[in-house]
C-alpha cells in the first residue's frame, strides 16, 4: 500500500490556483523528487500532506490516514510526517539538542533522559554530536539544516518531506546536507523531496515528478525522464537546468 497518496487535489490561494488536480502515490521506501520551476506548486504539495495547507478538493492519505477527515487529529497525522524547511526554522532560543528533544518530550511523552539520548543518537547520525550544546546562531547553515533533519527524525516519522532543503545554502555546503539525505534514502526512509538539485534527483531519487503551473506534467523513473523527457515543457525545463 502506498505511504502517501494524493488524488485530484486542488488548492487555490484567492484567485491563484496553485494545485489543479494533482494525483500522486508514493510507496514505502521510495524517494520521490519533485522538480519544476518556482511557483509551480511543489511546496504546496508537501504542505497538503501534513495539513500546513488545507486543500479545497480531492483526497490525501498518509499511512492510511485520511488527511481531509476532520476526525483525524493533527497530532496523529503530523507524528507520521517529518518536515524539513528551506529556511531551517530551528528554534533560535534553544540549543541543537533542545531543538531535537522538544517534540519527543511534548508529543511522544519521552522523559528528559530518553529524549536527550535520542537527540544525541540523531545528532551523531547527522554528524553533529559535538554541536549538541550550541545554539543555531553558532552553527553554519549546513549544520543548522542537519539539526533540523535530526529534529524531524526524532518523531520517528513514516515519511520525510524536504522543502528545498538546500536552496538557502551556499553551493559548497549543500553537499553535507545531501549526504545526510542520501543516508536516509539508503536506509529506505520514505521521502518526498522538493529540490533543484538535479544530481540528487537523478542518482538518489526512485521516482521523479515534474510539475509546472499546478499540474504534474510528467512522472516516472528519474533516469528515463532525465534522458528521454516526453513532454515539451519537461524538455524545456531540463534544458535550462542541466
Amino acid at each position: 500500500m502506498a505511504m502517501v497518496t494524493m488524488s485530484h487535489v486542488r488548492k487555490a490561494f484567492g484567485a491563484n490556483e496553485v494545485l489543479k488536480d494533482i494525483s500522486l502515490a508514493v510507496d514505502p521506501g521510495e524517494v520521490c523528487c519533485i522538480i519544476g520551476p518556482s511557483g509551480s506548486g511543489k511546496s504546496t504539495v508537501l504542505r497538503c500532506i501534513n495539513r500546513l495547507v488545507t486543500i479545497d478538493g480531492g483526497e490525501v492519505t498518509v499511512d492510511g490516514l485520511q488527511v481531509t477527515d476532520p476526525k483525524v487529529k493533527d497530532v496523529d497525522l503530523r507524528r507520521r510526517v517529518g518536515m524539513v524547511f528551506q529556511q531551517f526554522n530551528l528554534f533560535p532560543h534553544m540549543t541543537a539538542q533542545q531543538n531535537v528533544t522538544l517534540a519527543p518530550r511534548k508529543v511522544r511523552g519521552l522523559n528528559q533522559k530518553e529524549a536527550d539520548d535520542l537527540a544525541m543518537r540523531l545528532l551523531a547520525k547527522v554528524g553533529l554530536r559535538e554541536k549538541a550544546q550550541q545554539y543555531p546562531a553558532q552553527l553554519s547553515g549546513g549544520q543548522q539544516q542537519r539539526v533540523a533533519i535530526a529534529r524531524a527524525l526524532a518523531m520517528e516519522p513514516k515519511v520525510m518531506l524536504f522543502d528545498e532543503a538546500t536552496s538557502a545554502l551556499d553551493p559548497e555546503i549543500t553537499g553535507e546536507v545531501l549526504a545526510v539525505m542520501r543516508d536516509l534514502a539508503v536506509e529506505r526512509t520514505t521521502m518526498i523531496v522538493v529540490t533543484h538539485e538535479m544530481g540528487f534527483a537523478r542518482e538518489v531519487g526512485t521516482h521523479l515528478v515534474f510539475m509546472d503551473g499546478g499540474v504534474i506534467v510528467e512522472e516516472g523513473q528519474p533516469r528515463a525522464i532525465f534522458e528521454h523527457p516526453q513532454a515539451e515543457r519537461t524538455k524545456a525545463f531540463l534544458s535550462k537546468v542541466l
Binding site: N50, L52, D74, V75, R79, L90, F91, A152, M155
Partner: peptide, 15 residues
Amino acid sequence: IDKGQTEAGLALGLN
C-alpha cells in the same frame, strides 16, 4: 516572529 517558527512547531505535532 517568523511564521516559519510556528510552522516548524506545528509540523512536529505540537499543538
